[in-house]
Computed example of a mutant assay.
Amino acid sequence: MKFAAITIFFSLILLHSSESAITFGDILTGSKDTLIGVVSNVGTLIPTPTQFFSGTKNLLAGYPIEVVSTAINEVCSTLMYSDSITPKIMPDLKTMNFQFITPCQKYLIPILSPGDLLKIGAFDFSKKTVILVTGWRTTIDNSDTIVELSKAYNCRGGVNFIAIDVASAVDTLFTWSALNTEKLGEYLGQALADLVKYIPVESLHLIGHSLGAHIVGAAGRTFTEITEQKLPHITGLDPAKPCFNEGENLSGLMRGDAQFIDVIHSNPGVLGKRDPTGDVDFYPDGLAPLPKGCLTVTCAHSRAWEYYVESVYPGNEFNFMAYRCNSLLKLQQGRCSRNIATPMGYASVNSLKGNYFLEVRGSSPFGLNGNKTRDEANAMCGE
């Protein structure tokens, strides 16, 4: 407390200028008032054991990696600006496929022939069509994201679930893979422009994780250029940070790429972008790089799609209730209104704008409104 008093005292002296005649008595009075305010609020400033552990974990393992990630991002941006690197493997449109996934079977359709989807009896053009694009170093046959999200949507029903095979073009060095996102997005946008000749554009919902989020963003821009229409909905799951900066060669997913864009940030500032990139941006467990239950950035980066998958299962639509706020700490201290809660994930409201924060658990079910009994009941659903 003595140290705090001395710090405040000299801070006030430093703030003194020739234009403001602050007396010594004013300084003492101001110091006393400030100290009284600090003491009266000390209870809310002392972290809980959970907050202390989370803060220590991020201090030791999260924030140092964020500094490294920022440095890599700056180097990558410089290289992109100077055009000193080019993709090692250029995407080949002929090798890209739609993978239509039902509970019983997977169907591969060349992305050049989207109309062939309607030849599959299980494809129902009257249903909503969800298209997923995954991230770096994931293939269509080894992606937990595809397996788990297809299972959740097939459990819910009423949806045609499709994954896009872009692995051959995003399985090299990250910078090369990042360079390919724009071209892959253009290819997907062209395919979607053909697809809406057979199905209504209103039925489309694109979801992208990591680099996949930037691919679907580019797809939305290309689709608009070709059709002069906007895709109705894009969901970005922890859009990749390194090499993607607004106003530079690789801008990535941006507001305006669809009529409505919702984004879930789970590893902000490291593998995922920290800045808002959608119409509404959700920050589960705040802006810390490592959310509850994660000790590595790869775990944190995956949390975005794990949260989303949980929300898709029937009964889980309101597991993750978020509040518009400036930070998680302010929310926890009761300095943000909890009168209006809105769901993150499957049931996200397409009229939302701004940044929303929410608390989560460190293990499944991650949503505070999650129910283990309900999850056990859904365990085999959709397989």
Rank of each mutant, 00 (worst) to 15 (best):
F3V: 11
A4W: 07
I6P: 00
T7Q: 14
I8R: 13
I13S: 03
S18V: 11
T23R: 04
F24S: 05
L28I: 15
G37H: 05
V38S: 12
S40L: 06
N41P: 03
N41S: 15
P49S: 01
Q51N: 07
S54A: 14
K57R: 09
L59T: 10
G62N: 08
I65L: 15
E66I: 08
V67L: 14
S82Y: 09
I85G: 01
I89T: 05
M90V: 12
P91W: 00
P91A: 13
D92Y: 06
M96Q: 08
N97F: 13
N97A: 05
F98L: 05
Q99L: 10
I101C: 01
G115C: 07
D116M: 08
K119I: 03
F123V: 06
K127E: 07
K128H: 06
V130W: 03
V133S: 00
V133W: 09
G135I: 03
T139M: 13
I140T: 04
D141Y: 13
N142P: 00
T145C: 08
V159Y: 15
I162F: 07
A163H: 02
V166S: 04
A169H: 01
L173T: 03
A178S: 15
N180I: 00
N180L: 02
Y187Q: 06
L188P: 01
L192G: 07
A193S: 12
V196A: 02
K197T: 07
K197E: 06
K197F: 05
L204S: 09
I207S: 01
H209R: 08
A213F: 05
I215H: 08
R221D: 07
F223P: 01
T224D: 12
T224E: 15
E228Q: 06
Q229S: 07
G236L: 10
A240I: 04
N245E: 11
E248K: 15
N249H: 09
F260N: 02
D262P: 08
G269N: 10
D275S: 09
D275M: 12
P276G: 10
D281K: 14
F282I: 07
F282N: 10
C294V: 11
C294N: 05
V297R: 01
A304M: 11
W305N: 01
E306F: 09
Y308H: 09
V309L: 02
V309P: 00
V312R: 10
Y313A: 00
N316H: 13
E317H: 11
A322S: 04
A322N: 01
C325T: 13
N326W: 11
Q332C: 02
N339Q: 13
N339I: 14
M344E: 10
L352T: 09
K353Q: 14
K372C: 04
K372E: 09
R374N: 14
D375S: 11
E376D: 14
